[in-house]
Computed example of a mutant assay.
Amino acid sequence: MPLETVVDTPVTSVRRSRLNRNKWYGLLFILPTFGAYLLFSLVPTLAVFVLSLFKWDLVNEPVYIGLDNFIQLFNDPLFLKSLRITFTYVLYNIPIQYLISLLIVLALNRPLRGIKAFRVIYLVPWVTTPVAVAIVWKWVLNPSMGVLNYVIELLGFNRVDWFSSAMAMKSVLMVNIWQHTGFSTLILLVGIQSIPKMYYESAEIDGADRIRSFWHITLPLLKPTLLFLLITGFIGSFQVFDTVYAMTGGGPGDSTSVFYFLIYKQAFNFLEMGYASAMSVVLFIILMVVTLLQFKLFRNTTYDYS
């Protein structure tokens, strides 16, 4: 027996026409956003890849030089030094920041009086402009007139030169951790509160204490949240610029000349646009490879909470 065929009635024709019209309306609504993405993101990104093969100083015509920028890049000791400084910064920033955030979350995830007000307070540094934060902290850490050294002296200790070659990167690291811990704390708090309480209730019935519940319930079910934080944290840490620019200017010497700051110097101080573009391409490749590795390490991290 043949299957019953659906007759195209006037009602279904009108409904189909309405669906097609709504589809075009939807495309028109996303067109401005898509156009802005093409104009301000995709086209400049492709232009950087093309420009990395040229020598250009913003004044004269670009000259095609092939892979010479990349060959010069990997023979440049300053590039290799900035890469090492940046990786060191990332390897310190991410574990310390997320450990502090996790401790704060475990303290905040309790029904205490006034806890909601405190959750708002710890987000204030994150929503503040990074340059403003850096300028205030530059005054606080001033070796001769800074508030922090004044407090250190009151406690009977010697002043610290926070902007010396040995301490400048630690100062930048401290300020960035202070500013961005609020964001990772917020994301972790949402992740923990999305875990169903029945898992903890079952563990409590089985005699598990809080430490075991944390290791066997909280931490495994936080893997998707941790994956998001690791990806965004690595990208953000590798692109640190505002704090370095406002606090140290890459100095003293080149002790805080992170990768992004070096790109800025090559492009706008020395007008080496092609060379800076080659550095940006290397940065893009590094971030892409690390992101893919993180996805591979955190494979199968989605959970059904139903």
Rank of each mutant, 00 (worst) to 15 (best):
E4P: 00
T9D: 11
T12H: 06
S13P: 02
R15V: 09
R16Q: 14
R18N: 13
L19F: 10
R21N: 09
Y25M: 06
G26T: 12
L27V: 10
I30G: 08
F34I: 15
Y37E: 08
L51A: 13
S52I: 04
L53R: 07
K55W: 08
D57R: 00
V63W: 12
L67T: 06
F70P: 00
F74E: 11
L83H: 03
R84T: 15
R84D: 13
R84Q: 14
T86E: 08
T88P: 01
Y89I: 03
V90L: 13
L91F: 14
N93M: 07
P95W: 09
S101N: 08
L102Y: 13
L102W: 14
L106F: 10
A107N: 07
A107M: 12
G114H: 14
R119F: 09
L123A: 06
V127P: 04
W137M: 03
K138L: 13
W139R: 08
L141T: 05
N142R: 03
M145N: 14
V147H: 08
V147M: 12
V147K: 05
L148F: 11
N149K: 02
Y150N: 13
V160D: 04
W162V: 01
S165P: 02
A168Q: 02
S171C: 04
S171N: 13
S171K: 03
V172S: 03
W178L: 01
H180D: 14
T185F: 07
L186A: 15
I187G: 05
L189R: 05
L189Q: 10
V190F: 10
G191Y: 11
I195F: 13
G207E: 08
A208G: 07
A208M: 05
I211Y: 13
I211G: 04
R212T: 15
S213R: 02
F214I: 04
W215T: 04
T218Q: 01
P220C: 02
L222M: 14
K223A: 14
F228D: 12
L229Y: 12
F234Q: 10
D242F: 11
V244I: 13
G249L: 01
P252W: 09
S255M: 04
T256C: 01
V258C: 04
L262P: 01
Y264P: 00
Q266C: 03
F268Q: 10
L271W: 14
E272A: 03
M273C: 01
Y275A: 00
Y275G: 00
A276R: 02
V281L: 00
L283A: 15
L283R: 03
M288D: 07
V289G: 04
V290P: 04
L292I: 13
F295T: 05
F298M: 12
T301P: 02
